[in-house]
């Protein structure tokens, strides 16, 4: 699988570290009542077959965090965008 890093160009998957789903939102509350939301965020992740958007670190290259859209079934990579250039989720 080849990933088109916006800084480095197209590089093989061996240079990257995968973190996981980039579409989930981190809970903001630290209250005990938000435990379920944290449980969901930290542990209960989907493992979809098909389109997937995830955080990827170019650890063996420019060390930038990227958001990569790819297909877990066909290994087709749709896009790779540097998180630094994205708007923060509100």
């Amino acid at each position: 699988m080849l990933i088109p890093c916006p800084h480095c160009g197209t590089r093989p998957v061996e240079e990257f570290t995968f973190l996981g789903d980039a579409t989930v939102t981190r809970p903001t509350s630290l209250e005990p009542s938000s435990m379920d939301a944290w449980m969901d965020y930290v542990y209960l992740r989907d493992n979809p077959r098909g389109d997937y958007t995830e955080y990827v670190h170019h650890s063996g290259g420019c060390r930038a965090w990227l958001v990569v859209k790819r297909n877990t079934d066909t290994h087709e990579v749709d896009s790779a965008v540097a998180t630094k250039t994205m708007k923060a989720k509100t």
């Binding site: 480095c8 590089r11 063996g60």
Partner: peptide, 10 residues
């Protein structure tokens, strides 16, 4: 210049 890995070394 480029950043890469050779023999697992950055």
């Amino acid at each position: 210049s480029a950043l890469t890995q050779m023999a697992h070394v950055g």
